[in-house]
Amino acid sequence: MALKLKEIQAPVASEMIEFEQKFRSLMKSKVFLIDKIMSYIVKRKGKQMRPMFVFLSSGLCGNISERTYRGASLIELLHTASLVHDDVVDDSNFRRGFFSINALWKNKIAVLVGDYLLSRGLLLSVDHEDYDLLKIVSEAVREMSEGELLQMAKARSLDITEDLYYEVIRQKTASLIASCCAVGAASADRDKETVMRMKEFGLHVGMAFQIKDDLFDYGSHEIGKPLGIDIKEKKMTLPLIYALQQSSGSEKRRIKRIVKSNSQNQKKIQEVIDYVKTSGGIEYAETVMHDYYNKSTQILNEFPDSDYKTSLGQLVKFTIERSK
């Protein structure tokens, strides 16, 4: 039976509760409008997987300290800022089933709120001289931006190779999970080599996580009906990239033409989904995902046994077995 996140976070349950309280106080502002928006952001938080990675990594590498709380807060502040800005860029009205900030308060306010969150994160680190943590997270934010821009640059031509796909998801998704694990190790005052090893562990987890996300588009027994959202948005993900690699020139052109010109036609989208499935795209993506999972497990096994190690292993397993 699959474990739930509540069970996985058991070794750091009290720290997660304390973190939420600290994070709420960090989000407060004397400006009424900002305070109102911050309260809205805090209420619609997701699974809190990023702070969990920070605290479990810190426990694995030594001890959880005040620096760990600041590191987890820094990641949440900078990541939330990037999400608020992303919704403006994508003209998206919803995030996790809630109205986005730009949908409720318009783009100008959303951009400024993103800037505010960014400045809170920077000041939190500078005020406590956590320059090592700030460097780790700032590098991740830079990579996330580069990954997004790289994907945008290639989206029109649908000309994304498998190697380019890995580079995009490494930057867009894996870099953030890598920074969580690296921040956890750094906040426990571990040596640079251990911090880099934990960063590599997080990268493999992040790659597996994103491939799992991409597989949701094609449906499964747990998810049911295929979504086809990535196809509608003309995003080239691993199952489709692999399927196209196996195709003849004419078949490849036909499928690309469908993706380019029939993005809202559900019948045509289903045709692409069926094509990917019969071409072995799903199986191939699952194999690659499990390969990254195995690489992360190998690194985790280098550390001494503990409750933190057990939970981290369970959390990694959760990322590739989750149903949404």
Rank of each mutant, 00 (worst) to 15 (best):
M1E: 04
K4R: 14
L5N: 08
E7G: 06
V12H: 05
M16I: 10
I17G: 00
Q21A: 04
F23D: 11
S25I: 04
S29G: 03
K30R: 04
L33N: 03
D35V: 03
I37R: 05
Y40R: 15
Y40T: 00
K43L: 12
K43N: 11
G46F: 12
K47N: 10
Q48T: 08
Q48Y: 08
P51W: 08
M52C: 08
V54R: 05
F55L: 04
L60G: 14
G62L: 07
I64P: 09
E66G: 14
E66Q: 15
R67M: 12
L74N: 02
L74R: 00
E76P: 12
T80Q: 00
S82P: 10
D86V: 02
D86K: 01
R95M: 09
R95W: 03
F99Y: 10
I101K: 01
K106F: 09
K106M: 12
A110V: 08
A110H: 01
V113R: 01
D115S: 05
R120Q: 10
R120N: 08
L122P: 02
L123M: 11
L124C: 03
D127K: 15
D132M: 07
L134P: 06
V137T: 11
V137E: 13
E143D: 15
E143N: 12
E143V: 04
M144P: 12
E146F: 11
G147N: 11
L149P: 11
L150Y: 07
Q151F: 02
R156P: 05
D163S: 05
L164C: 05
Y166N: 07
Q171D: 13
K172V: 07
S175I: 02
L176I: 09
L176K: 00
I177H: 03
A178S: 13
S179F: 03
C181S: 14
A182H: 02
A182G: 08
V183R: 01
A188H: 06
A188Y: 07
R190I: 06
T194I: 15
M196E: 15
R197G: 11
E200Y: 03
G202D: 06
L203C: 07
V205G: 04
M207I: 10
F209C: 09
Q210W: 08
I211V: 12
L215V: 09
D217Q: 00
S220Y: 02
E222K: 06
E222N: 04
I223D: 00
K225P: 07
D230E: 05
K232A: 03
E233V: 06
K234R: 15
K234L: 07
K234G: 04
K234W: 02
K235W: 09
P239F: 06
A243F: 05
L244F: 02
L244H: 02
Q245K: 03
S247N: 04
S248T: 09
S250A: 09
E251W: 02
K256W: 03
I258R: 02
S263T: 06
Q266A: 06
K268V: 01
Q270N: 14
V272E: 03
D274H: 06
K277R: 10
G280L: 13
G280S: 05
G281I: 10
I282P: 13
Y284F: 15
A285N: 12
E286N: 15
D291R: 12
D291Y: 07
D291F: 07
Y293T: 07
S296T: 01
S296M: 08
T297E: 10
L300V: 14
F303L: 13
D305K: 15
D307H: 13
D307I: 00
S311Q: 13
S311P: 14
V316E: 11
V316Q: 05
K317M: 11
F318W: 14
R322I: 07
